[in-house]
């Protein structure tokens, strides 16, 4: 897949940066090399140390069973990232709330999700509940025009919960399959804004029983360890069910999702790899782990 090729290229640059061989003698994984590979991928100090510790403690037979040190590591990381696979409860309509800090790419992700839903043959409406940022409503409306999809919006400055309530009721009476809600970007440290999000969530449940069935946190792949703090707060206040990792088409690895999965058990659902609507892919733990550990493949490649 082209994306993972690009990820590898980025990692090649990283390797050049260190100018040292990351693979030890005889095809064994050097512990420092492993730690560095994880650190430069933004896995975070604690998680990196945790993984290194697990690796050091793994018994010889365990490693042999897995097919070698690298294989053991890959399996370990894949297990960390594994989604339990239970699909979210389907609702009627199915409500997806898209949340995150400023500038991660929420609005674009909403458009991509809506396009994907329509491609799957579902009737879908987008909701412009970012009534705070200047021209956020216009941005989603422009996407709506481009995609030929309907957007429910109030004027800027309106109560986001009211927009959502109206949109959900409309979707219910028109028997639409899916509602995708764009919310305002907010730093997870702003109590009042997080409280506002709680309210939006409550109102969803009032309009449609069981809604929102999905709450997706949009995480920017360039984010460092702060991503974990973001995930923690958004999970607490908005009930995040999954992560959308955006901007993976640059050189960033987005390793923080490993910390998020390990600490909070929130799985990654989608990855964003570009600016057009097709650039949203289902997350693949295999490919992600391959890219993350690529520096350890040594020079045999």
């Amino acid at each position: 897949m082209e994306l993972w090729e690009r990820l590898r290229k980025g990692l090649g640059a990283t390797r050049a940066l260190f100018g040292e061989r990351l693979m030890g003698e005889g095809g064994r994984v050097r512990v420092e090399a492993l730690e560095e590979a994880l650190l430069v991928a933004d896995v975070g100090v604690e998680t990196a140390e945790g993984i290194v510790r697990d690796f050091a403690r793994a018994s010889r037979s365990e490693v042999a069973d897995a097919g070698g040190e690298l294989a053991w590591l890959k399996a370990r990381l894949r297990r960390l990232l594994s989604d339990d696979g239970t699909p979210p409860q389907r609702g009627m309509p199915h409500v997806v709330l898209v949340v995150g800090v400023n500038g991660t790419g929420k609005t674009t992700t909403v458009a991509k999700l809506a396009a994907a839903a329509r491609a799957a043959g579902r009737s879908v409406v987008m909701v412009a509940a970012d009534t705070f940022r200047a021209a956020a409503v216009e941005q989603l409306q422009s996407w709506g025009q481009r995609l030929g999809l309907e957007v429910v919006a109030h004027r800027q400055g309106a109560d986001p919960a009211a927009v959502v309530f109206d949109a959900l009721n409309a979707a219910k009476s028109r028997k639409l399959d899916e509602v995708i809600v764009d919310t305002a970007g907010r730093l997870h440290t702003k109590h009042n804004l997080m409280a506002e999000l709680e309210k939006v969530r409550r109102v969803c449940g009032r309009a449609v029983t069981g809604a929102p069935q999905e709450v997706l946190l949009v995480l920017d792949a360039t984010t460092g360890s702060n991503g974990l703090a973001q995930a923690r707060e958004f999970r607490e206040h908005a009930g995040v069910t999954g992560v959308v990792l955006t901007k993976l088409d640059g050189t960033a690895k987005g390793g923080v999702v490993l910390a998020v999965a390990r600490e909070l058990g929130v799985p990654v659902k989608w990855v964003g790899v570009g600016e057009s609507v097709e650039d949203l892919l289902p997350f693949s733990a295999d490919a992600f782990v391959e890219a993350l550990l690529e520096p350890l493949q040594g020079e045999s490649r």
Partner: peptide
């Protein structure tokens, strides 16, 4: 630059 950026900050 975003204050929340991680390791990628050097590359970009």
């Amino acid at each position: 630059a975003d204050a929340m950026t991680g390791q990628d900050a050097v590359r970009s």
